[in-house]
Nucleic acid binder design. Structure first.
Lengths: 339, 339
DNA sequence: CCCCGGAAGTTATACGTAAAACCTCGGACC
DNA sequence: GGTCCGAGGTTTTACGTATAACTTCCGGGG
């Protein structure tokens, strides 16, 4: 069992395969491209495959992409993978892409991007289409004046520019949360909202305002990290006047910050204060008490988004998708305190 | 301000730019490739750039890659981005790559990979090099018989096959943990180890065994998720015989599981049981009490790894790197109980 | 007997770029 | 006055693939 691998760094080409198989390069291309039925004999096809295998032949993707004018590569634009939600979105998108022979490349984060560099060149990939989260607002600016097919995640379905929209039904999620808390007797609320501007957060705020129109609601904004949420919640909960009995958060991360702030203030969760999250990431069951939250099908979200993009690329006009979400009641929410 | 953008989906080529600028395609290539000093006049160069801008010209990456035989793209192989540690590694690697004009593509997860599909084709990218974590063991198998430059993350520096090694000094981290706990008077330990086979975990186990050679140590393995860790720790802590007073975990996630199991058993952390984590991810400060853990410079880890790979690609023989880690004492560890 | 059609290939070409090799002209130098 | 040289380009070629267009051979039908 010797290794007939090419030495010296030069990879074998289809022409090399043709030479060893004793056929022309075109035949190699036909056989390996699975377009040979009725054009090449079974025998010849076999010997071509054998030659390719023994040489360790791998088609040159750059050449194929140039020839075909397509790259079978999609760009995924999300804010940051260190947010578990987007890591799941990536996973789903990558899986759906792979199932169709596509690759996924991530838009480089703004920090990683040098000054005034071309976002497309930075991706270093020729692209067939773009799948973008509305939360990556700054990155999206870079895509003005591009005619690449674009599918938007969690953005206004009425907004122009996108070939398709795939959304999570966050409005229903927020209705479930408010219904849950109202049912527990809560009437004074704090809404800890994300400071990041995005359509999905606007929807949550609007839904919440509508569902709680009879109750008392205060809104505070915070960046999506525990420390900032802790500080914002601490200030809001220690403010003069009647204290809210429930805090509705736009994200599990914020809810964790609220719980920490509550404990610091001597408030028990859920006896003195109910707290709800959003997303149902690993964090939600890591803390004590576990978070009442809204489960978002993050991975399916990415999968459906990519499938919509692939449909667009295939020429099928896709219809908008809105994925159902689910309320997961856990220990962080309980009956409103008696007083 | 009209839009002279190409209509109908056909992007302008360097030849189109040449035509509008009134020069040859070669001149366009020289100017835009910044190789024109002394070969093209300032005037001509200016008009070429102007033409390119007005046409919205973007070089065809596939053609460039084919011509140059390089793609300025590296493959990153990690187990799962939903593990926050690897999301940080990706971020650092992508930033370092972007700073050198490189792109990063992720190895598709095994699930996303169809049956018996070529891992390289699945990435849908022609690659210049590979940066791989030793924790992605199954994926690494796919790279046998490849001569792509390979830099390993957290793998045995003595192992062959890699052009360079970049490691975290986890041995020192584990020594700090054991020193910390021994100093607090602990003598009976439980080591909750990762069930995933990897060199980095072997090092932790070996270091721990050596540092605690005079003490009593039991080892239990668990997959890296809260639920499994909870179960494994629950069993171990409820086992007959003297109970360990400290649990040393290979990962913050495991430590969180241990804390939950301890609470279930009526054990207070840290009064009855000290628990330490590893990694210092967001989880560590989300829980109560906050975790004593070892801070790993995850993002720098990715950055240095990518820089090592870029050095290899540039022909510079790099020396092995071992990044320092840091013990972060927090609330989950305290003096051993008196009894 | 001739022609036609299908099987089994081969030859030729284009994709867009980078760069080596070549051309042309106007002055400087001997 | 011829030659050389450098500035400022242009012409040409190659990268590896996919496929359209062409060739060749052979058996069968009229």
């Amino acid at each position: 069992m010797q290794t007939p691998e090419p030495l010296g760094g030069t990879r074998p080409t289809s022409r090399d395969v043709a030479r060893t198989a004793g056929v022309s390069q075109a035949t190699v291309s036909l056989v390996l491209g699975d377009k040979w039925r009725g054009r090449v004999s079974e025998r010849t096809a076999g010997s071509v495959r054998e030659a390719a295998r023994s040489l360790g032949y791998r088609p040159n993707l750059a050449a194929r992409n140039l020839r075909l004018g397509r790259t079978r590569t999609a760009l995924l634009v999300v804010p940051a993978l260190t947010n578990e939600f987007f890591a799941h979105v990536y996973t789903g998108a990558a899986a759906a892409a792979a199932a169709h022979g596509f690759g996924v490349v991530l838009y480089p984060s703004p920090e990683g991007l040098g000054p005034a560099r071309d976002p497309f060149a930075s991706a270093q990939a020729a692209l067939d289409g773009v799948l973008a989260s509305s939360m990556a607002t700054d990155a999206l600016e870079a895509f003005r004046g591009t005619d690449l097919p674009l599918v938007m995640l969690d953005s206004d379905p009425a907004a122009p520019g996108a070939a398709a929209h795939v959304n999570l039904d966050v409005a229903e999620g927020m209705r479930r949360v408010t219904g849950h808390l109202l049912g527990l007797g809560h009437r004074r609320f704090l809404h800890l909202a994300s400071a990041a501007p995005s359509w999905t957060f606007d929807v949550r705020a609007a839904t919440l305002a509508h569902a709680l129109s009879g109750a008392e609601v205060r809104t505070v904004r915070s960046p999506l990290n525990i420390a900032d949420a802790w500080e914002a919640a601490g200030l809001a909960l220690a403010a003069p006047g009647p204290r809210p009995t429930a805090v509705i958060c736009d994200d599990d991360i914020l809810a964790v910050g609220v719980c920490k702030a509550a404990r610091r203030l001597g408030l028990r969760v859920p006896e003195d204060l109910s707290v709800t999250g959003f997303d149902d990431m690993a964090l939600a069951t890591a803390v004590e008490p576990e978070l009442t939250t809204v489960r978002l099908p993050a991975e399916e979200f990415g999968r459906r988004g990519m499938e919509a993009l692939l449909a667009v690329l295939a020429g099928e006009p896709p219809r908008p998708v809105s994925l159902p979400v689910e309320l997961v009641p856990r220990g962080s929410s309980g009956p409103a305190p008696a007083s």
